[in-house]
Design a protein around this nucleic acid. Structure first.
Length: 454
DNA sequence: TTTTGAGTTGTTCGA
DNA sequence: GTCGAACAACTCAAA
C-alpha cells in the first residue's frame, strides 16, 4: 500500500528509521510508493526567525533534489493537511519520527486521532535524538535532574545502528504537484545547507576541528566549534550518525558530552513541558524580574548590542547579522541580561528564538535557565559571569569583538574589551557601559539573598 | 537505611 | 602573582 512520510525535523534520507519504515511498508505490499510530505504549519512557521525560514527553504530545496523533485510541500493546519494527503493517495499509514516538544506532541496526538477515525495509522519511529526523551531513567523510574548521572546512564543505554534504506528501488516516491516554497522577507541568504553538506561539515570537523575541540570550542575568536547546530536543528544529520563515528579521545569525549546536553535538555523538557517558559525552580519566579514593559529601554539596548560591554554587544550583533552566536558568548550575554539587567530569562530566550537559525526550544529554554540558576544542575546563583574577565580569557586579542563592533575597530589589542579605559574608546560613537557590573552583581546577589530568607 | 561526596561552563577575597 | 576558600541548596549514586 501507499504510505505517507511526513518530514518535520528530519530533512534527510540517510539514517532515517521512520523513512526506512515508510519505504519498507510500501515496498513489501505490491510495490506501491511513498508520498514525501512537508507541511507548512503557520503555528510553527510564522513565529520562526526569518533567517531560520530561509535556511529551511534552502534545506527543503536540497531535500527535494534528493527526492527527484517529488517532495510535496503543502501549507495549512496539520490536522487537515495530513489527512487530506493521506486520503488522496489512498495511504493506509503515515510515518513520522517522534517530536517531543510541547506543541509537537499535542499536534501529533490530534493528527493521530483524526487519522484513526479515517482508518489510517500514524506510525512513530525514532526521534531526532540518539536516545529518545523519556527513555533514560533512574533505577526508581524517575527522570534525572542532574546532567552527569544522566550522561552515564545515557551512554550505557546506547543507540541503535544507523538505518539503511532498502537497496532495490531507487525511486520510491510518488510524483506530486507541490506548492512553491513560502516567501520570506529580508535579504538574508543561506549559501549552503542540506544532507550532503551536513555530512561534509562533520567530516571536515572530524579531520580538522576535533583535535583541540575541548579548548578551542570556548574561543569565539577562533573557528573552534563543530558548526553542526544548523544541520542538527533541521535533522539534516542525525546525532546517531555522529556518535557512531566518534572515538575515545578526550576531545571526542567532550564533543559527545555536547551532543548529550542536547538530549538531556530534550528529556527534561519532555518531562516538564511548562519549562519552555516557566522556571523549573518555581521560587525563582518570585524574585521580581524585569520584563519588556518594566525594563523596555534596557532590553532594547541589550537586543541591539548597545550595552557598552564589547563582548556582550559583539555577541548580540553577531546574532542579528548571522542568526548564530558562539556558545560561550551566549552564556555571557545571558548572564548579563539576567544578573546585570535583572530581566527575566524568558525575554532573552524569546529574543534568541526570534533570531537563531539553530533555535531549539529545549536547548534554548534550559540553556537560559542554567544561566539564570533556576533549571537543572543546581547552578549556584553566585555564578555570575564578569563580562570583562570572560572577554579577556576567551577573546584575548579582541579579534571577535572587532569583527562585530566597527566603532572599536581602531583599537588593535585586548584593551578593546574596556573602551572606557582607552583614550579613543568612545571616539566613534561606541556607548559608555549602561550599568556598572560590580554594582549590579551585588544587586543580583541581594535579590537571591532575599528569596533565601523567605 | 543513612551518610557522604561530587556535581559543565565562575568570581572574589584574603593569605 | 598565586592559590585555596567561600559563596547555597539540592540531586544522585556509591559506600
Amino acid at each position: 500500500m501507499t504510505t505517507v512520510f511526513w518530514f518535520r525535523r528530519d530533512l534527510r534520507l540517510g539514517d532515517n528509521p521512520a523513512l526506512a519504515n515508510a519505504i519498507e511498508e510500501a515496498l513489501t505490499t505490491d510495490g506501491k510508493k511513498v508520498v514525501a510530505l512537508f507541511n507548512i504549519d503557520a503555528k510553527v512557521f510564522d513565529p520562526a526567525s526569518d533567517k531560520q525560514k530561509v535556511y529551511q527553504n534552502c534545506s527543503l530545496t536540497q531535500l527535494n533534489k534528493s527526492l527527484n523533485g517529488n517532495l510535496l510541500i503543502k501549507s495549512g493546519a496539520p490536522e487537515k493537511v495530513i489527512l487530506e494527503v493521506a486520503q488522496k493517495a489512498r495511504a493506509t499509514s503515515v510515518h513520522i519520527s517522534e517530536d517531543f516538544e510541547p506543541y509537537g506532541r499535542v499536534r501529533d496526538d490530534k493528527v493521530e486521532a483524526i487519522l484513526k477515525k479515517n482508518g489510517i495509522k500514524l506510525v512513530r519511529t525514532g526521534s531526532p535524538y540518539a536516545v529518545s526523551p523519556l527513555r533514560v531513567r533512574k533505577d526508581d523510574g524517575t527522570p534525572y535532574r542532574v546532567y552527569t548521572p544522566f550522561y552515564r546512564a545515557w551512554s550505557a543505554h546506547g543507540w541503535r545502528k544507523p538505518a539503511v534504506l532498502p537497496k532495490e528501488k531507487p525511486n520510491w516516491f510518488l510524483p506530486m504537484k507541490s506548492e512553491a516554497l513560502p516567501q520570506v522577507a529580508g535579504e538574508f541568504e543561506v549559501i549552503n545547507c542540506g544532507e550532503e553538506h551536513a555530512l561534509n561539515i562533520f567530516e571536515d570537523f572530524s579531520k580538522k576541528g576535533m583535535r583541540g575541540y575541548g579548548e578551542n570550542r570556548n574561543r569565539p575568536d577562533l573557528t573552534g566549534t563543530s558548526k553542526l547546530s544548523f544541520p542538527l536543528r533541521f535533522g539534516e544529520i542525525h546525532p546517531r550518525t555522529i556518535l557512531t563515528q566518534l572515538g575515545d579521545s578526550e576531545d571526542e569525549e567532550t564533543f559527545r558530552k555536547e551532543i548529550c546536553w542536547r538530549e538531556f535538555y530534550a528529556d527534561v523538557l519532555a518531562h516538564n513541558p511548562h519549562s519552555e517558559t516557566i522556571s523549573l525552580n518555581s521560587t525563582w519566579e518570585k524574585m521580581g524580574w524585569g520584563n519588556s514593559k518594566t525594563h523596555a529601554s534596557e532590553l532594547t539596548k541589550w537586543k541591539n548590542g548597545l550595552t557598552g560591554y564589547p563582548i556582550v554587544d559583539a555577541g548580540m550583533r553577531q546574532l542579528i547579522e548571522t542568526g548564530w552566536m558562539h556558545n560561550r558568548v551566549r552564556m555571557i550575554v545571558g548572564s548579563f541580561l539576567v544578573k546585570d539587567l535583572h530581566i527575566h530569562w524568558r525575554e532573552g530566550a524569546a529574543w534568541f528564538m526570534e533570531h537563531l537559525i539553530d533555535g531549539d526550544i529545549a536547548s534554548n529554554s534550559h540553556g537560559w535557565q542554567w544561566v539564570a540558576g533556576c533549571g537543572t544542575d543546581a547552578a549556584p546563583y553566585f555564578r555570575i559571569f564578569n563580562p570583562i574577565t570572560q572577554a579577556l580569557k576567551f577573546d584575548p586579542k579582541g579579534d571577535y569583538v572587532r569583527t562585530w563592533i566597527k566603532e572599536l575597530s581602531h583599537i588593535t589589542d585586548g584593551s578593546v574589551h574596556e573602551p572606557w579605559k582607552h583614550p579613543l574608546g568612545h571616539a566613534h560613537g561606541y556607548p559608555e557601559p549602561m550599568v556598572d557590573h560590580a554594582t549590579e552583581r551585588e544587586h543580583a546577589l541581594a535579590m537571591y539573598e532575599k528569596i533565601k530568607k523567605n
